[in-house]
Design a binder for these strands. Sequence first.
DNA 1: CTTACGATGTATGCAGCGTTCACATTAGGT
DNA 2: ACCTAATGTGAACGCTGCATACATCGTAAG
Lengths: 207, 207
Amino acid sequence: MSQAGGTYHHGDLRAACLRAARELLEEDGSAGLSLRAVARRAGVSATAPYRHYADRDALVSAVAAQGYRELAEYLAAAHPSPTTPDELAAVAVAYVRFALERPALFRVMFAEPCDPNSEERVAATTAISEYVRGIVRGAFPGADAEALSTTVWALVHGLAFLHLDGKLDTSTPDVVADQVRAAVRALFTAPAALSPKTGAPHEGAKP
Amino acid sequence: MSQAGGTYHHGDLRAACLRAARELLEEDGSAGLSLRAVARRAGVSATAPYRHYADRDALVSAVAAQGYRELAEYLAAAHPSPTTPDELAAVAVAYVRFALERPALFRVMFAEPCDPNSEERVAATTAISEYVRGIVRGAFPGADAEALSTTVWALVHGLAFLHLDGKLDTSTPDVVADQVRAAVRALFTAPAALSPKTGAPHEGAKP
DNA sequence: CTTACGATGTATGCAGCGTTCACATTAGGT
DNA sequence: ACCTAATGTGAACGCTGCATACATCGTAAG
């Protein structure tokens, strides 16, 4: 039975480890995420988690994968299928908000060397990638979806990280949201007053 | 135990630790950056570095600060004072190249929880911030330098991180450079074919 | 020139970590 | 009812960061 009692077998240790890891992540940051601490919190011996995760990286990858799935839900909740720049900006705001609300999780998802060993993790990140591309494709059919989605994702991702690292003003959520909206809007607005000289003479032309 | 001259005192252990840390970072990634390994490489006892760095974080912060200074040099070398979009794109390419050439260092600089304890580190990051803002201010006097520099920094920073995490095509440096140039240029080019409906009347209306 | 002191490096030890291995316990199919 | 495979336990190894007590040395005052 799954309820925690005096049973020798835990019931669903795999899920319990994931849950414990998430809690530790929120409480002590990624530094406190140790397999032993996870085992302690799950009320189990230090080596029990090895029956469900090959090593620490496997657990971390599982946490990251779950984070990706939650991020996808979070973005979809902000707007199911944005088409206007403002709707797209709303999704961008949600992305940054997600990062600021779960900083340790977000760091685990992106800031750690992502080996291509975890199928679950790779699948989750390509899902996010496809999601962003799908949004861009739907919103701007005429554009190069590949390039534009890369650009918008990078912009939002960079905003999230800079906020996370305290490089930008993170005083209130509203300030952050305004900043994100302004940045995204800049992507889709012709900067009339800008570019005093439109230098386009030569570039790396390599056919 | 010091091979050189056999002197008891090292001479400049502080610098030697920094150098050893940089080497370990490039060889084994941030996981291999341990105080003990640094001490070993410097040919010194395990606790000697504590005379020069309060704890591991202090060493890491010193490494990060040095990374910031090198990044500033690297960008300046790409172009001392860019004014056209293409010149600015060249600096952006340098930023991403820096990240891809020193992935572990870049991660130490940005991906780790940056406590405001290290004065050296804070000073170095604000220097970078000021540098970017200065470029934007010089290149686009009419624009809101604060907002625009945030936007361009975030875009480039996000590109660097997504490349670092293998989320984008990193097969050859040329491919990466083209991608970065295209993204930066998109920031300063009116997206003609885009925005089928220009939802600009109001925003944030999502009860 | 001697001597005392502060700066620097060493030796030792503790607790926590990831990981392995032999062993104990139990669930579930035959 | 039993046998097997899955699951959890315990001890152990080597690594880590770090605190404490001790050794060595440059240097400047006397």
